[in-house]
Amino acid sequence: MLNAQGKKIMAQGKSRGWIMEPEAKTLLRIFNFAVPAFLWTGKLQEAEAFAAEQGFPLAMKIVSSTIVHKSEAGGVVLGIDGLEGLREHFERFRAFEGFEGVLLEEMVRGSAEVIIGSKTDLQFGPVVLLGIGGTGVEIYNDAVLRMAPLTSADARSMIESLKGKALLTGFRGSTGINIAYLQQMLIRFSNLVMELDDIESIDLNPVICSSERAVIADARFILQSE
């Protein structure tokens, strides 16, 4: 169920048309999805304190109400390995249009990246997509889709139906990811999209999968315009 904080995020997002990443992560955390440890701040001292506590390397992303596609705008830096880099990029991001702080995150490790997404289809209502993810997601174009809510058989067949499923189940001696965890996550995500109103589409991309769990490294919620 959506708590007061979640309702507030949805309401704010509604007026903007989309939900900014730190708020999307907060929303996902409310629903018990794994997200990286993160801090949303506009103050350099707070960022430095987070780095001291969390340790390097870290990822830094721009938070701006006018920038939906952060990578394309040059607003994502991965693998910052010291205070010097942290300060440099913080100052650079400060000059971005609509600056509302930075998102500082732990770097999550895994053996495979997937995209989990949803869209509210005019004819079929909420549908859930699973694909081989990362930045090349539209190049691989290896995705499967089911109508929400998903049954466990649906979640199983989604993973089975990916052309690149060996990337997930393991190949040439590499250990696979935790398939059962991913299946459960797909089902829980499908329940989330059934519960939230006004969603146009959601991208969880990449979701970084390891032999233990699957962590949502980036999330984008686009809401239906009024």
């Binding site: 004819q123 889709l145 991208d203 686009i222």
Partner: peptide, 22 residues
């Protein structure tokens, strides 16, 4: 399309996948 999902999940793809699911 404003998202990867929306761009990959075109009308026919959704139709075909959902039909086969059922």
């Amino acid at each position: 399309a404003s998202s990867h999902t929306a761009s990959m999940a075109g009308d026919y793809f959704v139709f075909k996948e959902v039909m086969q699911q059922h």
